[in-house]
Write a protein that binds this DNA or RNA. Sequence first.
DNA 1: ATAGGCACCGTACCCAGGTACGGAGACAAG
DNA 2: CTTGTCTCCGTACCTGGGTACGGTGCCTAT
Lengths: 135, 135
Amino acid sequence: MTQKNFTIGVLANKAGVTVETIRFYQRRGLLAVPVKPLKGVRHYTEGDAQRVRFIKEGQKLGFTLDEITELLSLEEDRHCREVKVIALKKLGLIRERIESLRKMESTLSDLVERCAGNNDSIACPIIESLSQASK
Amino acid sequence: MTQKNFTIGVLANKAGVTVETIRFYQRRGLLAVPVKPLKGVRHYTEGDAQRVRFIKEGQKLGFTLDEITELLSLEEDRHCREVKVIALKKLGLIRERIESLRKMESTLSDLVERCAGNNDSIACPIIESLSQASK
DNA sequence: ATAGGCACCGTACCCAGGTACGGAGACAAG
DNA sequence: CTTGTCTCCGTACCTGGGTACGGTGCCTAT
């Protein structure tokens, strides 16, 4: 379980990232740097691989590395409440971003629809709209 | 119309950005640098203010500065077709982003719902999910 | 014992869209 | 005519999440 059994390159491979990314996570404090024997290279465990996968899953849900650091610190013991708070905040942010993009989508699709797309029309509605600066 | 009438600070104010931003747009080639009289400061026109507002409107619709540069170059004459192509590409990207965020939102809201939020439960579904690394 | 391939480490660079700093010149008010 | 506020200009820095480089050390197979 605590057995150190593979090198950084193998760890990177197992977790689906590059060696540079592992080292980057170590610098960011997301991943511990294992003790280096006076002669030889550092050794990593299955737990390290699991941790990197946790980070990647967190990113897929939209969490930043700072948030993931916090989530990792809440991994052990019962911290459901704290975790839920972080998740709800992220959920709110995601919904805001969706709403903001939805507005862009709506305006832009309307403009595109109104744009003939031939170069004959009096004026391009898209250009017109940008020039209006309606605020 | 072509009358040069105000300074960079006034331009920034009119357009709702900072002086630094104006200078940044000049470096990026979005905005021309007016001739500087041998003695004195550069002067800007209402057209410059209009152009900065165009840039800001473009950003609100999700366009990058590079895309806005292109849109600005298509402002004059009839380039409706080319403009529409750019807008459609952007629209596609926005829709992709919405879809990606929607998936996050769905997964995360499901997890949040399943999370009791008290620290008593056996295991936090959110932490569990991140640890699964289901890919 | 030596060659090739990793590991180690510090540091610099990438993207986008700015923001900040600092010295020097210009200009308007008092 | 001096003081204070702009302007001008080059350059460095910021966020986030990495990617790249280059010299050296270590390990393994031949």
